[in-house]
Design a protein around this nucleic acid. Structure first.
Lengths: 189, 189
DNA sequence: CGCACTTTTTGACTTTTGTCAAAAACATTC
DNA sequence: GAATGTTTTTGACAAAAGTCAAAAAGTGCG
């Protein structure tokens, strides 16, 4: 799907507005493994994932590669905290699969916002989705054990487990790969 | 401060708009220990904290009292996920100190939004703050040890440590009270 | 198929955090 | 200031998760 299609499912948008979005949005293709946004740079783009899978990750104090979040098709994403605070992004964004994205400069998006107030609603809606998923994440990290977190993932986003290596999932869940492997063999029984 | 004062620091608001907010907003006082919103009910209000300290908590599977979040003066808050999804709130909101709040019904807020589009900006801004703080929280839970989380809290929100008992802080950090007590005596050295 | 490479699992051990209960410290009230 | 209740610390032990390294399994390719 194209971003305007998804957006207009949230609120109906005028033809003008959709056209303006289309004009400012650029479709880009990334091959598996390529870096879409490098850490250390302020993130100035909004991304919409048409197909593929993205991973936010960074290198912790021991230079270990830690996954912060995955984003799959039909989602909007960006390193929002980097943009909002105009500070360098902690995260790299990497394509885990060949991915087709629509890219929009944040500055252009803001111009669109003031030109088409109807966009405020979809903006709210996107922020809200971010917020709800962040809250879910906090609850899972604060209250659940490694095993429970794995089970939750298995229930709620089983497709990710198919598409991503265990090491990435382990760091995403905040646990050690060996531990995750053990949890998993236990869960299988 | 009053909510309109804080809001107009974000974006200047028209006198009309401020007056409309004032009219729909009700000031309420809660004594220490009282429940502002009970879990199990959909949360239909926005709260602005003029003074005092609030705590979101809930009872986990073993009926243990677990703190999800603290909110201090000059902040807006609400059980947003409950409102957004129209599902019962997981959390109770409790006044940890005698607190003075301004309360606004969500439905009224939404009416204000459509009447005064200028409010979209402040709404974005509030959502954004929520989001940034949620992200901080995730990072802290995902990547830091119990001791580091305590040190972070000590650096970033030392006042909370003065105002709240250790048990609440422990559950907020996702660790056991005894563990926190030990960490603390170690940090003091 | 066989080789090189990557990912996952397993074993032995360590560290971190949790549990439960009692003691100590602190507060409050009469 | 003794008595009561609450919160914090501590001790002894248990469980969960991490570490490191090697073995096993899986993948891709000439």
């Amino acid at each position: 799907m194209k971003p305007t299609e998804v957006l207009s499912q949230i609120t109906p948008l005028s033809a003008d507005c959709m056209q303006a979005i289309d004009e400012l949005t650029e479709q880009k293709h990334y091959t598996k493994g390529s870096i879409i946004h490098p850490s250390g740079k302020v993130c100035k783009h909004l991304y919409f994932i048409e197909s593929g899978l993205l991973r936010f990750f960074y290198h912790d104090r021991d230079a270990k590669d830690v996954t912060y979040q995955f984003f799959g098709e039909n989602l909007f994403t960006s390193v929002i905290n980097s943009y909002y605070t105009q500070t360098p992004s902690l995260y790299n964004i990497e394509a885990m699969e060949d991915s087709s994205l629509y890219v929009l400069r944040f500055a252009d998006f803001e111009a669109l916002l003031s030109r088409f107030p109807e966009l405020d609603k979809v903006y709210h809606s996107v922020l809200r989705e971010f917020l709800l998923s962040a809250e879910q994440r906090i609850i899972s990290l604060q209250f659940y054990s490694a095993e429970e977190r794995y089970r939750n993932l298995l229930e709620n986003q089983p497709s990710i487990l198919q598409r991503v290596s265990l090491g990435h999932i382990a760091s995403y869940l905040g646990i050690n790969q060996a531990t995750l492997s053990r949890v998993r063999s236990k869960v299988r029984l």
